[in-house]
Amino acid sequence: MPVKIPMEKWAGSVRTVTLGATAADGGTRQHTVTVGGETTLPFLHFEGEIPNRPVVATEIQDRRPDGWSELLMEAWGDRMNDPGDWAKAAEEAGADLIALTFGLTGLDGQPTSAESARLAVRKVLDATGLPVMVSGPGQAEVDNELLVAVAEEGAGERLVLGYCEDRNYRTIVAAALGHGHLVHARTAMDVNLAKQLNILINDMQLPLDRIIMDPTTGALGYGIEYGYSVMERLRLAALQGDSMTQLPMLVTVGEETWKAKESKVGQGVPETWGVWEERAINWEAVTASSLIQSGADIVVVRHPESVKRVHAVIDSMMTANDRGGS
């Protein structure tokens, strides 16, 4: 008997956002990355369009980080000593985007200065042709100081500047407006907070197609279900026509999962957790691939192996259905 497939008639779609600018558009990127544009839920090819693949960003820092898992230190090795070199290594490892984050202090223990932030961004832009996202250490005054300098240094590159948070977004949005950049809008696992922040940013005249929203998530085992469901709800709202939720979504999976003990620690843990490296990469890859199913357009990861794993999953999800949708 012929079965009629129930289709949803979605009223809305996700906005298309382009990261990075090539010489033709006033930047120096070799190519740009476009995300968003979905007219249905993640990967339901039988129902709507998924015009752009989700992408994988690799997180690098402005200097050799403190407190990162040994596994990550081994994976990137000496290339972590210089942000340009690290960015290049990330590009070689298959990243679609570079996500540069600043620590609060430099290796010398002194607070990170605007000047050193500028220098780090310059190195990254010179070393790679990929679009770049840049975010501060997450403390309002420091973020503002560093990001204003970064915005000037990278003028015209369509960088993604972060983090805009409800308590601190004005300076960063102004910097993005002034120098042709995008912003990374971060809220704490709540649909209404995410919407509210988009409205505030948009009220400052930054067009919606220059905002990437980060609803944040917990790692696998540490609240992933909250992030997962908030993303599903945001995407449903977008498809139902709520314009302030129609933005591509980003999640910083690496930052969350590598805090988890399962990833960070190799010794003194239960044997049932399995081989450390395998487990740690699974932790990051499983968190990332499940959040892609709930609507993430950009996942930021830390381990080079995760980049490969998540790309393979995206390939598999973007392969046209083996069965034409019946």
Partner: peptide, 9 residues
């Protein structure tokens, strides 16, 4: 089914 996209559909 034989692929992830096919399975999801």
């Amino acid at each position: 089914v034989g692929t992830m996209a096919g399975a999801l559909s």
